[in-house]
Design a protein around this nucleic acid. Structure first.
Lengths: 348, 348
DNA sequence: ACCCCGATAGAAAGCGCTTTCTGTCACGGA
DNA sequence: TCCGTGACAGAAAGCGCTTTCTATCGGGGT
C-alpha cells in the first residue's frame, strides 16, 4: 500500500520517532541521521498521513475561509489575498505549510453553520468568515455559540468585513467602515447639487446593507434632504437592472442613484441607458467596492473603494497568528471615495 | 476537554462501537438504542474528530478544487458550481457531507504541486483541477506523476477546462472546445469584412492560450487572410490596455481585436477609447468566456460563451462519483458564439 | 580514574475513531 | 424441552503518527 513513516524508519535504520523528529524539526537530530532519513523519504516518495498527524498532534494545518459568494470578485479578491498571506506565513507546526481552503456558503446561514461544523470536525487551525452576515437573532446566536466552541477548541477565528457577533467569542474582527463610505458618497452627491437620490440596497437583514443605508441616511439627514426611494435586492446586475424601474416609478425626477455595489451599479446603468437616460447627464450613478471592472465601465464608476486585498491579507495574518489585533473591539478598516465619470452635477 | 465518542458512549450506556455504528449508519442498531445515542450526541454537543475518522477509515470527505485565480469570476463561477454540486451529492461514507474546498494556485505550478501534496496528505476523496495548465514538459511530468499517485491512493481526479496530462493517470477530463470557439469568433469577424485582426493572447505556454490561438489561425488560414499582430499577456484588464498600443504600433490599420478573455477585452476597449477610436465604428473588439459583466460593457461585448456553471457542476458530480464519464478520452464541452454590439463591419 | 551531564536515539503509550471478531439473548421449529 | 438462528451489542485490535519517558554514549570537571 502506501508508504508509512515506519517504512521510512526501516529504510533509514532508525526508529519511527526519529523520522517524526526529522520531519517536524522540533528536536535535535544529528546531521548524519537527518540526511539518512531525508534520503529515505525521497527514495520512497513518502507523503505523511495528514489525518494521523492531526490526530496525534491534536491540531491540523487547515485554515477555512468562508465566503458568501465565490463567484463575486469582492470575495475572490479578499479570499485570494488571505490565502496568499497564509501560504507565505509558512511555518506552522514544524514549518508545515497551512492549507487555506475557501468554502462557499452562498450566503446561506445553514451552509455557513454546516461548514463551521465540518471545519470543527477537521480541527481546523483557523477559520475566517468573510462578508456581511444575516442579522436574524436566532442565526446570530447559533453562530456565536459555534464560534465560541471553535475558539475553545483552539481554532483561531477571524471575522473580516463582518461585525462582531454577540457574546465574547474570542474572534479577531476586521470591519469596513461602510457607514462612513456611504456617507461620503452621499455627501458627494449632495455637494454636486442632487436632492432626489434613489438607493438600490443589498439584501435586507444583512449587516452590510444596513450599515451602508445608515451612512446614506446620516448624510441626507445632516443636509436636511428627504430620503428618496429605496429598493432591496441581491448583489447582482440583474437586481440593479430591475430595481431601476421601481425607483423611477416612485420618483421620475430622480437625478442620482446609489447602488449596493459596483455590480448592481452596472445593472442600473444598463437600465437607465435602455430608457434613453444619459449618465451622468440625466442621472448620476455611484457604486461601492471599486471592483476591477469599475474603472472600465462607461462612464467609469464613482464608487467607494474598500481595500479588499489589504484586508484579506490582514485577515490571513490574523488567522495564522502572524499578526495580533490590539484589544478593544473590532479594527475598523478605512474606505475611500473614488470620484469618476458616472457622477456629475444634475441638469439645470 | 472536547467531547469524544467514548463520552457519548458512556452517557448513552452503550459501547463506543455502537455509537460509531449509529453515526455512520452502516450496521443494524435497534431503534431504541439509536435514539439513546442520538440524544446523548445532542446533549453533549458532540462533534466527531475528523482526523481520527479519516485515519481509522482510511478516507476523508475533503474534495479539493484547484483554481488558477480565485479573484477571477471565470474560476469563481466554475468553483462555486462544483462546490454546490458536491454539497448536494450529500451522501459519502454514511451520508456524511463532503467538504469542498477551493485552493488558489495563482497559476504557479509549484503551488499547484504543493496543494496536490497537501491534499494527498489529507487523503482527499477527490481533486478537481480547473483551468489551463502550463505546457512545460517537466511540470507536466511532475503533475502526471502526482495525479497517478493520487488515483492509486483512491482519490478521484477530475480535470475541468484543462487537457489530459500525458500518461494514463485515470483522471476524468472535461475540456472546453476553445479551438472551435476561437474559430467561430474569427469567422464572424471575417464575415463582417475584417482583414486586419489583432490578437491579445493569454500567457504563452498555457494550453488555453494555445488552443484559442490555433482556432483563430485555422479560421484565418481557411479564408486565406494573413495573421495580424499578436501580443501575449496575463488575463487582466491591464494586459489588454497595454497590449493595444503594441498592436496598433505594429498595424495602425487594424479594424478588429480579439482578446484572450472578456477582462482583457475591457482593457482593450478602454485603450482604444483613450485614443479616440470608437467601438465598433473604428475597431471591433471581441472577448472570450462571457463573464457576467460583459453584457453591461459599452458597447456590450461580442464573445464566446463557455458554460462555466454547467461544466463546474459536472466536474463536481464527477468528483463525487455521482456521474461517470464514458470512456474514450476527454469529454468536450461545446461553446457558443454570442454576438453583441462590440463587433461590426469595418468602415469603408 | 570517577561521576555527572549534554546530546541523541529508541520504546512505548496513546490520539479518537472504525471494524472485525465474538459473544449474548430471545425466539421459533422439531 | 432443546438447539439452531437471527438480531444486536461489546471487546479489542489496529489506523499512522507524536511525544513523553528512558537509555546510551562520549566527554569534561575535579
Amino acid at each position: 500500500m502506501t508508504v508509512t513513516l515506519a517504512d521510512v524508519a526501516a529504510r533509514a535504520r532508525v526508529s519511527p520517532a526519529t523520522v517524526s523528529r526529522v520531519l517536524n524539526g522540533n528536536y535535535p537530530v544529528a546531521a548524519s541521521t537527518r540526511e539518512r532519513v531525508l534520503l529515505a523519504v525521497r527514495e520512497l516518495d513518502y507523503v505523511p498521513n495528514g489525518p494521523a498527524s492531526s490526530l496525534a498532534a491534536a491540531t491540523s494545518d487547515l485554515v477555512g475561509v468562508l465566503v458568501n459568494d465565490i463567484a463575486d470578485p469582492f470575495f475572490g479578491i479578499m479570499a485570494g489575498a488571505a490565502q496568499s498571506a497564509i501560504g507565505e506565513g509558512a511555518g506552522g507546526r514544524g514549518g508545515a505549510e497551512k492549507l487555506a481552503v475557501v468554502c462557499n456558503t452562498g450566503g446561506s446561514p445553514e451552509r455557513e453553520l454546516t461548514y463551521l461544523t465540518l471545519l470543527q470536525r477537521q480541527r481546523a487551525a483557523a477559520v475566517i468568515l468573510m462578508g456581511g452576515s444575516l442579522e436574524d437573532p436566532e442565526h446570530l446566536a447559533a453562530t456565536s455559540g459555534k464560534l465560541a466552541r471553535l475558539t475553545e477548541a483552539g481554532t483561531r477565528v477571524v471575522l473580516c468585513g463582518r461585525p462582531p457577533v454577540p457574546g465574547d467569542t474570542g474572534a479577531a474582527v476586521l470591519v469596513f467602515d461602510n457607514r462612513a463610505g456611504a456617507r461620503l458618497l452621499t455627501e458627494h452627491l449632495l455637494a454636486l447639487g442632487h436632492r432626489r437620490i434613489g438607493y438600490v440596497a443589498g439584501p435586507a437583514d444583512r449587516t452590510t446593507t444596513r450599515h451602508r443605508l445608515e451612512g446614506h441616511r446620516q448624510a441626507l439627514a445632516a443636509a436636511g434632504v428627504p430620503e428618496g426611494p429605496t429598493v432591496h435586492g441581491p448583489y447582482d446586475r440583474r437586481s440593479g437592472h430591475e430595481a431601476t424601474a421601481g425607483l423611477l416609478a416612485r420618483d421620475p425626477d430622480l437625478t442620482a442613484v446609489v447602488a449596493a455595489n459596483d455590480t448592481v451599479a452596472l445593472g442600473v446603468c444598463a437600465a437607465l441607458r435602455e430608457r434613453g437616460l444619459s449618465i451622468p447627464g440625466d442621472v448620476s450613478v455611484a457604486g461601492f467596492d471599486d471592483l476591477p471592472f469599475s474603472v472600465d465601465a462607461v462612464p467609469a464608476l464613482t464608487t467607494v473603494r474598500l481595500p479588499l486585498h489589504a484586508a484579506g491579507a490582514r485577515a490571513g495574518r490574523l488567522a495564522t497568528g502572524a499578526e495580533e489585533l490590539p484589544p478593544g473591539g473590532p479594527a475598523v478598516v478605512p474606505v475611500e471615495l473614488v470620484l469618476r465619470g458616472s457622477t456629475g452635477a444634475p441638469r439645470g
